Simulated scan of single mutants.
Amino acid sequence: MDPMNRQVIDTHGVSAQPHVPDQVHPRLPGGFNLPPFGIHQVLAVVIVCIALWAVGAIWLGLQAANQWVGSWQQDIHIHVYLSDDHGSAAGSADKLQEALQTISQVASVRRISAEEAAAWMQGWLHDADLETGELVKRLPLTFELSLTDENAPFLFDDIRDAASRFGARVNEDEVNLARAHYWLSKASWLVWFASLVLALAMALIISNTLRMTLLARADEIHLMRLLGAKEWFVRMPFILEGMVLGVAAGVAAWILLWPIDLFSREWLLTMQVELSLWLLLPALLIGGGVVGTVGALIATARVVSAETAA
């Protein structure tokens, strides 16, 4: 008879359990051993990775916009242009300057002559062959406004009203840039809200994935509870699995964000914007880990509570 299959007979003639080979290491299910990964876990990682990639791409765009607008708004100026036809009429230039200075949010008003503007344009268009005298004839009288609070209500409407009374016009592109910080602050709240909604969706995806694993191992969990295993001892491997799924999705999403940075780097450098993906790495790792942990807590709470009630 094969010694591996031979039963051991004790002194009372009762057969004992068969001998377990040395190379076999039996263990109870659960504990601190992670469950095996399967197709459901892989699909969960892919779906969560796509969601984290979308969140990361949105935050990269917000980061680029903040850098671009923030670099411009370190020294906020709005220019008002007064043509020679209107400026020569009864001292309209002086009256316009006084009207602009009466606006409370305007810190100062500086008059830029056509000669100064032509010299600046020559320096800006250094490759162009332009005559300074001809530029002086064509450029309007310019007023440069320094602002104390670009987000003040009705500020730009007051500037437009003061300019229109004397036939001047406001540089609307600069007005739009000055307002960009206000809209970016509003957009950041929307991004936070969208991130929280996606985080909840990702937690539910991981929760459903672990739920299927828990249902497949319901008998093992019940056996562990009958043998006296504590609730957290049973839940811990699945919580660790959810954390690993979230962190893995975060790493994958961070890697997939690099092509965006590589393809847009030269274009962003022309606007003096430099993205930093390394700043997003801790956020994606921590966010993925938290999402996975929350999903695992939801899944294990339902299964363990149902098993305990039974």
Rank of each mutant, 00 (worst) to 15 (best):
M224S: 09
W189S: 11
W254I: 06
T308D: 01
Q23L: 05
E115L: 13
W183C: 04
I298G: 06
M236S: 13
P153Q: 06
S188N: 14
V303A: 06
P29V: 10
I58G: 12
A252T: 15
F156P: 00
A252I: 15
A306W: 04
D219P: 14
I50W: 07
N208G: 03
V175G: 06
V8P: 13
I50P: 15
Y81I: 11
V304D: 00
W59C: 02
D161G: 04
Q105E: 15
I239E: 00
M212E: 07
A64F: 11
I206S: 02
G30Y: 02
L200V: 14
R111Q: 13
G242H: 01
L204G: 01
G56F: 11
L100C: 08
A216G: 15
L245I: 15
I205F: 00
T308P: 01
D10L: 07
H126S: 13
I112S: 02
T209N: 02
S146E: 11
M202D: 04
P153T: 09
I159H: 01
V42F: 12
Q74Y: 00
S108E: 14
A44P: 11
S71E: 08
S83H: 08
L227E: 00
V251P: 02
L240A: 04
Q17N: 14
W59T: 07
I50S: 13
Q63M: 07
Q122L: 14
R160H: 14
